[in-house]
Design a protein around this nucleic acid. Structure first.
Ligand SMILES: [Mn+2]
Ligand SMILES: [Mn+2]
Ligand SMILES: [Zn+2]
Ligand SMILES: [Zn+2]
Lengths: 150, 150
DNA sequence: TTTTAGTTTATAATGATTACAGATTAGTAA
DNA sequence: TTACTAATCTGTAATCATTATAAACTAAAA
């Protein structure tokens, strides 16, 4: 995500107005590496401008996402937790269109995190997720989220 | 996840009663590899026993999870979407206790999915997530979800 | 059978997010 | 500067996924 002033310029270019609320959200996010939730951002905003509404925070986040300046952390359970009958360690292949989720039961070599990159974490597991288009969605490329199988 | 009869035995062993509702949910899940949501399971249950309630489905799923026979698909945005100011391709390190989420900006070698394992998918991306305990949570191992930094 | 602890159901409550409508304002142009 | 207006903001209601509650029901032990 760019600097506050770049975001201001970008918003103006695209015909979005630059309000004090938006500018404050830019300032709070520009330096942030903590992957905050909307609620956390709202609380930080409120500490400075107590009258700002949650809706404005949600709206501004959505705008930043639309402009490609922010993104939601990847989440395979959009629209409800998904349950896995495979309780052993394994990886996944996810269709970004129809949300088909397929197990990958083999192991990958070379996925090590040297201590200096592990930020002091004691590691217990890791998981790889591949994103792509399943055969059904490649074919029916019209666009509507087909339901794949069944 | 085990066979229906094994699940029946397991439930009896642990003092859970085996009701027709539970047995049906076992039957629907035992062969399933689709990573269904609670709502999808509920709809499948309802097609057979229309009077079963959503609550029973949720309860049974929770029991299966408690017994280690089922698990929720990993999700870094438990309790609300998290927003990422880093919009470029990168990986993550996640504290399973306080949910701290840290970027890993380097690439991993050897993460290839040969076509025969790709199930016909056209791949567009992949992501690695490491799970572990952050330094704060290793120290304060009492258990309560400390908030880490800030 | 009878008993009862555990289970189910319907309904209410909660938490995250989106939809809406009326009040407010950024940015433009006179 | 002032006036204008489309865009934005706020408060509130609605929606969706999930959990809590309490009264009715029942599996399984005696
Ligand atoms: Mn799986
Ligand atoms: Mn990140
Ligand atoms: Zn698909
Ligand atoms: Zn931690």
């Amino acid at each position: 995500m760019r600097s506050v002033e770049d975001l201001v310029r970008l918003f103006r270019e695209r015909g979005y107005k630059v309000t004090p609320q938006r500018r404050l959200i830019f300032e709070l996010l520009a330096g942030d590496r903590s992957h905050p939730t909307a609620e956390e951002i709202y609380q930080r905003v409120r500490a400075v401008m107590p009258e700002v509404s949650r809706t404005t925070v949600y709206n501004t986040l959505r705008e930043l996402i639309t402009l490609g300046e922010l993104r939601p952390v990847e989440n395979l359970s959009e629209g409800g937790t998904r349950y896995d009958t495979n309780t052993t360690h394994h990886h996944h292949l996810f269709c970004v269109q129809c949300h088909a989720l397929i197990d990958i039961d083999r192991e990958f070599e070379g996925i090590e995190l040297p201590p200096e990159e592990a930020a002091g974490f004691r590691l217990v597991n890791y998981q790889v997720t591949f994103y792509g288009y399943c055969p059904d969605c490649q074919r029916a490329d019209g666009g509507r989220p087909s339901q794949g199988k069944e």
